[in-house]
Design a protein around this nucleic acid. Structure first.
Length: 508
RNA sequence: GAUCUCGUAGCUCAGCUGGCAGAGCAUCUGACUUUUAAUCAGAGGGUCCUGGGUUCAAAUCCCAGCGAGAUCACCA
C-alpha cells in the first residue's frame, strides 16, 4: 500500500507514542460525564457549574501557542473548545505529555479524553480548561478539514474546504458523518421517522412482526427480484420485493394489527429516487377499510412530522408543505378531469388510447385499460399534487390485491398519498375473497402473456390462506426513504441511506 | 439503457489556443501561556482515474475503458 506523506507521519507518531510507553489504543474505559453541546447550552459563569467535567471525542482543530494551546474536541453532540496549559497537565519537570504527546504526536482525528472545568476565555468562548489528558485512539488517516466560520457582520456560517464530493461522501460515509454535522442530522431524523411511527402503532395496540426476506415466490408487488440459491434445499429463492402476502397470512392467523419495517429488494434501475434495497413499512389492520385508513395515515404522518421537524410545516425544494390533516381526497377520475378537462371514467381501451395520443403520451400494445389510465395520471396529474392529497379508487386491472369498490364498477378501494408530486403511501381495502383473488391472479397471468413484465405471480399458498378466511382488512405501505427525503428536504435517496449502493471501487 | 458534465497533493480547487505541476487549508521544522479560518518565518508533498493514439512535446487534443453526478426512460 502506498502511504501518503501524512499517513507516514501518523504511523511514526504512533511508534513514538509506544516508545514513550503510551498505548495508542488503550483498553480501559473512559468515563464521560458531559457533552459539548450540553455544556455550551447550560454553562453559566456566574453559577460556576460544570467544574468537574469529563469529555471524550476527536480532536478536530489545534491552535498551538507555545506553552498553552487551544483545540476543538468533537463528541457525539458537537464541538467545544478546550484549553491545554503545559504546566497544568505536566505538573513536574517532565513536560513530555504536553510537548510530545499533545503538541506533536496527537493529530486531527485522534480520540482523546479530558478532565477539567468549564470557563469563559477572554473573547467569551465557552471552553474546557484541561487538567488531565488521556490518549484514547490514534487516527492514521487525515480527515478532510472543513472549517465553518460565522461571519461577524452577516451572521451567516461560511464553509471553507467543504467535503462535498458525493462519491467520497457515500463511499466513506464514516468520514462524511465526522466532518458534516448536517449529514448526521439527516440520519438522526430518519431514525425519528421510524421511531415515532413505531410508537404510534404500538400505542394503537398493533404488533411489530418479521416476515421472510428469502421467499420461494416473489409476490405482493410487480418488480424484478434478486435471485439466489439455497444450497442445502437446492432450490431458488428470491429476495423479497414486498412482504404484503405474508402480513396478510398473519391477519388470517388471527392478529388484529400487524406491521413490519423492513428492507425490500428490487433488481431494477438506480437513480435519485431508487436504490436496489429500500425500506418500507407495511401495516394491516383487521375490520377496517381504506376510508378509515386515510384518517389513520393523517394522524400518523402528522405526528411523525412533528416528531422529526417540530411542526407540521415543511419546506420541500421550492414548496411549502403542510402535513396537518385532513388531506384533500380526490378520486383518480376526478383528478384527471381536473387537470386535463377530460372525463375518462366511461371510456373503453380504444378511447383511452386515443386520449393518450391526443395528450402526446406514448403507449404500447401491452398496456391494458388500467395501465393507460395510470399513464395519463402519471403524465398529467401527479406533478400538480403538491400538498398532501389522497388519490382514491383505482382501476381494477392495476391493483390485483385490492377489494372491488363497494359501489363503483371497475374500480378498487385503493388510495395513494401524494406529496410534492410524489407518491409516499399506498393503501387498500384488502381483497379477502379467495375466488376473486384467484381470478385477479389469473388476469395478471394474461397480462404477462401480453408482454407486461410487471405482472404479478400467482401464489397458491396465499390463496389457500385466504380460503380459510381473512377478515375485512385495510393495509398500508409507506416508503420510509422517500418520506424521510421529504421531511429532511433531500433531493436524492442516497442522502437518506447511510450506505447507498455503489459500483465497485477499483482502487484501494 | 440513452445523452451531457466531471475525475489534478490528505481536502477544496486553478491550470488559457499543447511548452518545467500550481494555490489555500492540512503536513513537517522553528517562535509564541486566553487563541478564533490564531499569527509569523521556513520546508516537504503528485500513478494529473486507467490504457492506447496524435505530436519534437499531452494534465491539456483524439479513441476506448473505469468511476461519479445531472437529465431522460422504467420502477417505489
Amino acid at each position: 500500500m502506498q502511504l501518503s506523506e501524512q499517513e507516514v507521519v501518523r504511523r511514526e507518531a504512533l511508534a513514538k507514542m509506544r516508545d514513550l510507553g503510551i498505548d495508542p489504543y488503550p483498553a480501559e474505559r473512559f468515563e464521560v460525564n458531559a457533552y459539548a453541546t450540553e455544556i455550551k447550552e447550560n454553562f453559566d459563569a456566574e453559577k460556576g457549574n460544570y467544574q468537574e467535567v469529563s469529555l471524550a471525542g476527536r480532536i478536530m482543530m489545534k491552535r498551538i501557542m507555545g506553552k498553552a494551546s487551544f483545540a476543538e474536541l468533537q463528541d457525539s453532540s458537537g464541538r467545544i473548545q478546550i484549553y491545554v496549559n503545559r504546566d497544568e497537565i505536566c505538573e513536574g519537570e517532565d513536560k513530555t505529555l504536553y510537548n510530545q504527546v499533545f503538541k506533536k504526536l496527537s493529530d486531527i482525528g485522534d480520540f482523546i479524553g479530558i478532565k477539567g472545568f468549564v470557563f469563559l476565555t477572554r473573547t467569551g468562548e465557552i471552553s474546557v480548561h484541561v487538567k488531565e489528558f488521556r490518549f484514547l485512539s490514534k487516527s492514521l488517516r487525515p480527515l478532510p478539514i472543513v472549517r465553518r466560520v460565522e461571519n461577524a457582520e452577516t451572521g451567516e456560517v461560511e464553509i471553507f474546504d467543504a467535503f462535498t464530493d458525493p462519491e467520497l461522501r457515500y463511499r466513506q460515509r464514516y468520514v462524511d458523518l465526522v466532518v458534516n454535522p448536517e449529514v448526521r442530522q439527516i440520519f438522526m431524523k430518519r431514525s425519528k421517522v421510524i421511531n415515532s411511527m413505531r410508537s404510534y402503532f404500538d400505542e394503537q395496540g398493533w404488533m411489530e412482526v418479521e416476515t421472510p426476506i428469502l421467499q420461494p415466490i416473489h409476490g405482493g408487488a410487480a418488480a424484478r427480484p434478486f435471485e439466489t440459491h439455497h444450497n442445502t434445499l437446492d432450490m431458488p429463492l428470491y429476495l423479497r420485493i414486498a412482504n404484503e402476502l405474508y402480513l396478510k397470512r398473519l391477519i388470517v392467523g388471527g392478529f388484529d394489527g400487524v406491521y413490519e419495517f423492513g428492507k425490500m429488494f428490487r433488481n431494477e434501475g438506480m437513480d435519485r429516487t431508487h436504490n436496489p434495497e429500500f425500506t418500507s413499512m407495511e401495516i394491516y389492520v383487521a375490520y377496517k377499510d381504506y376510508d378509515w385508513m386515510m384518517g389513520m395515515v393523517e394522524e400518523c404522518i402528522e405526528r411523525v412530522c412533528i416528531a422529526v421537524t417540530g411542526g407540521t410545516d415543511v419546506t420541500v425544494g421550492e414548496n411549502a408543505i403542510s402535513f396537518k390533516g385532513p388531506y384533500r381526497r380526490l378520486s383518480m377520475f376526478d383528478s384527471i378531469k381536473e387537470y386535463t378537462g377530460i372525463d375518462v371514467s366511461e371510456m373503453d381501451e380504444d378511447g383511452l388510447r386515443q386520449v393518450c395520443k391526443d395528450l402526446h403520451i406514448e403507449t404500447d400494445n401491452s398496456m391494458g385499460k388500467g395501465k393507460l389510465i395510470d399513464e395519463i395520471f402519471g403524465e398529467k396529474v401527479e406533478d400538480h399534487l403538491i400538498q398532501p392529497t389522497y388519490i382514491t379508487d383505482y382501476p381494477i386491472e392495476m391493483t390485483p390485491l385490492a377489494k372491488k369498490h363497494r359501489s363503483k364498477e371497475g374500480l378498487v378501494e385503493r388510495f395513494e398519498l401524494f406529496v410534492n408530486g410524489k407518491e409516499i403511501a399506498n393503501a387498500y381495502s384488502e381483497l379477502n375473497d379467495p375466488i376473486d383473488q384467484r381470478e385477479r391472479f389469473e388476469d395478471q397471468l394474461k397480462l404477462a402473456e401480453r408482454g407486461d413484465d410487471e405482472a404479478m405471480a400467482l401464489d397458491e399458498d396465499f390463496l389457500r390462506a385466504l380460503e380459510y378466511g381473512m377478515p375485512p382488512t385495510s393495509g398500508l405501505g409507506i416508503g420510509i426513504d422517500r418520506l424521510t427525503m421529504m421531511l429532511t428536504n433531500q433531493q436524492s435517496i442516497q442522502e437518506v441511506l447511510f450506505f447507498p449502493q455503489m459500483k465497485a471501487e477499483n482502487k484501494g
